[in-house]
């Protein structure tokens, strides 16, 4: 419950304050967000599987974000930034979908 409230609070903060993203962060923010969403859905799935662990969630969240940003950074350096970004988004999207499917099976048996 607290994390969900935190998410809402964060959305409200972002909408109200409208912080400016520094230029160096701009390519990484969208990928980092998708990676974080993957971690969140993975966490919810783990809850339903009964194997949720706070520490694992925090670590996976942070490592997801860092690794995603790192891949984009590396891609930028190698000159294939946009393609690699697309790849990361596709992979994370597939994972989010499978996690959501698993959550759905748990909750609705369908």
């Amino acid at each position: 419950m607290i994390p969900a409230l935190g998410l809402l609070l964060g959305l409200a903060l972002g909408l109200l304050l409208n912080p400016s993203v520094p230029l160096w962060l701009q390519p990484y923010l969208p990928i980092a967000i998708v990676a974080a969403l993957d971690a969140v859905f993975g966490g919810v799935r783990a809850v339903l599987d009964g194997i949720f662990n706070d520490k694992v969630f925090v670590v996976s969240f942070l490592s997801n974000v860092v690794v995603a940003a790192l891949i984009v950074f590396l891609g930028d350096q190698l000159g294939v930034g946009s393609q690699l970004s697309t790849g990361v988004v596709v992979v994370l999207g597939v994972r989010i979908f499978s996690n959501v499917a698993s959550i759905r099976r748990h909750l609705f048996r369908a």
Partner: peptide, 14 residues
């Protein structure tokens, strides 16, 4: 986890 969620929310909105 809650603070991470706040960060995520700010990130998405931004």
């Amino acid at each position: 986890a809650a603070s991470l969620a706040v960060l995520l929310g700010v990130g998405i909105a931004t």
